[in-house]
Write a protein that binds this DNA or RNA. Structure first.
Lengths: 328, 328
DNA sequence: CATTTTTTGTCAATGTTTTGTAAAGGTTTG
DNA sequence: CAAACCTTTACAAAACATTGACAAAAAATG
């Protein structure tokens, strides 16, 4: 049984765009130039699409971001497209050259969205927040969404939380919305079989999960196979997860400098439990407070968004090289 | 529930509007433009609708907020519309014969999936778990998925956790996967504008969120507009969320009888903070341990899956009636 | 390697369709 | 008689369509 409905389901182009992740203009362009889809029309001339069309555009979107030329694959059947995507390595996210002219516009757009999203958070309007996020993902693309919208937004929320403009519930609500969005983001970027694995969580006592959530999403986008565990877990549990999944990296977010003892103790225990072959990465607002322990334990400390991305790619490369050697 | 296909039950447009959530003007517009409904008339010319018409408008309302174009689906049959929305809302129609999968088959299938899912949990394989869930949702439909798969699975996890077969991480991982599935489930079942609102969370000290998650999903499926806050929140925060969202119900899950004092205290504080006009619902494995407090505070205690569903529908009906009165 | 050429995503301008809402003025109902 | 309905007409915002053009990226060519 396939996911798609029969032909009775009819959508207008904006819905198709939202669901497939392809901008409306581009949907039309693909139809005009390559007949990638052939929607029926209303009496007034508006395009009307089926569920199949949406599935098709979703796959085409994935395939093109994997490097395929749209002109070559536009007329493939659904099965052909699925087959194409199965036997493929994922999109490698380049961390390098960013300051392109198009990026500037995106940054502007992202700021715009960021304001709207923050307003929704402040108003405690989960529905609106989710809606803004959805639109932003389509317009910005997953990568830019994270870098220029999500990342600064979470920083802002963290700050406002300290000043008292926001309450803890605001953060919980936001986490909840973002968590359910994970599904769309992951959908755009299926990860391969042999991807390096990572656990993301928060040590015990650390209740704020926004940072961890961001890290998890970023890692997934960089081609990692991430298992996200949520916040506030004791070292033994996290270590167990690392073993179960055979992960080669563990990322923790520490955003609040509550009790130095606990965090330090947990970090030391964790390192002992997971051993040296697993990379321990720590980030978050308050990570700096624990610098001595971080150094002692041998933690990779995240400095910035870009830094984390570099780290992710670097580690993934190392892991792949290691993996190749083992196989030979 | 049951639908009286009785022709004797006839309604005027204001009633139809209230029950379906479609404004009177719009009901007329849909009739004039697309013949979405074709009510009979009184001798004087007033429109007279049947229960079927109401059901129809309800579905059309849902479908449009789901992205379907009203002009395209206005003339669909009731069955077509139901099929379009795939997951059937319990509060609406279920009376017609289900020609496709028997309930018995579904239960069997669900058990099958349940086993697979539990195996994935045990093996700590988040990807496989998510994949099973996805397939199950498609095959079973959202409702059956929750009743016959998710609900028993979570119970099982709770039990196995107590015996030590599963660790806390297993539960965290499962929560994480289910949380990201929320997106699909919600998408299948968009809630109307005037839906009653509910907050779902877990009182401070209660770290297990699976029960709360299930409650949230069920409530959404019953037509509530749910804001899910995650676990472990102090009374003030939860109460703030209730106020922000103007919720008329609050559901808490208590699955672990840690410290009687804290939970009891939190419940009392919560009741004070939210007042009497907000329904306080409590469920979960360990809810029974707090029976005295629950009685004292005036809590509705969830007894079972079915009971919760009844409660949800009943409260929603009460709220709608109240809302109607306020508007008049 | 340097130049075209092609591909591809994006945008702008301009006109149309869709769709929810509202006002005006008459009719029915209780 | 007041409240609720009815019909018609109109309106405006959002969403679409079409055409044509542009520029970056990729590919082909010299």
């Amino acid at each position: 049984m396939t996911v798609t409905n029969d032909d009775s389901a009819q959508y207008l182009i904006r819905t198709v765009s939202k669901r497939s992740g392809v901008k409306s203009d581009l949907v039309r362009a693909w139809e005009r130039r390559y007949q990638a889809v052939t929607p029926t029309r209303t009496s007034g001339g508006h395009r009307v699409y089926t569920d199949q069309d949406i599935a098709r555009l979703k796959l085409l979107n994935q395939a093109t971001s994997n490097g395929h030329s749209i002109s070559q694959i536009a007329q493939f059947s659904l099965d052909d497209l699925k087959h194409l995507l199965k036997s493929e390595t994922p999109s490698t996210v380049q961390a390098t050259n960013n300051p392109l002219p198009t990026t500037r516009d995106k940054i502007h757009l992202a700021e715009d969205y960021s304001d709207k999203c923050y307003a929704a958070v402040l108003a405690f309007d989960a529905q609106k927040l989710e809606s803004h996020f959805e639109n932003a993902i389509v317009e910005l693309g997953a990568e830019s969404f994270i870098e220029h919208l999500l990342s600064p937004l979470l920083t802002k929320i963290g700050e406002r939380w300290k000043t008292g403009e926001l309450r803890p519930v605001h953060e919980h609500m936001t986490s909840s919305v973002i968590r359910s969005l994970t599904y769309i983001l992951r959908n755009n970027n299926p990860c391969p079989e042999n991807a390096p694995r990572m656990i993301v969580s928060t040590p015990i006592g650390q209740l704020h999960e926004l940072g961890a959530l961001l890290a998890a999403i970023m890692a997934e986008l960089c081609g990692w196979q991430v298992t996200y565990l949520g916040a506030n877990l004791p070292a033994e549990e996290i270590a167990a997860a690392v073993k179960y999944t055979n992960s080669c990296a563990l990322t923790l977010s520490i955003s609040f400098a509550t009790d130095d003892h606990i965090v330090a103790k947990e970090l030391r225990r964790l390192k002992k439990l997971i051993g040296n072959h697993v990379s321990l990465i720590v980030g978050g607002r308050a990570a700096g407070h624990f610098q001595p322990v971080l150094n002692e334990v041998g933690v990779m400390n995240i400095q910035s968004y870009t830094h984390f991305k570099q780290l992710l790619n670097q580690l993934a490369a190392e892991y792949r090289a290691l993996d190749d050697n083992n196989r030979q």
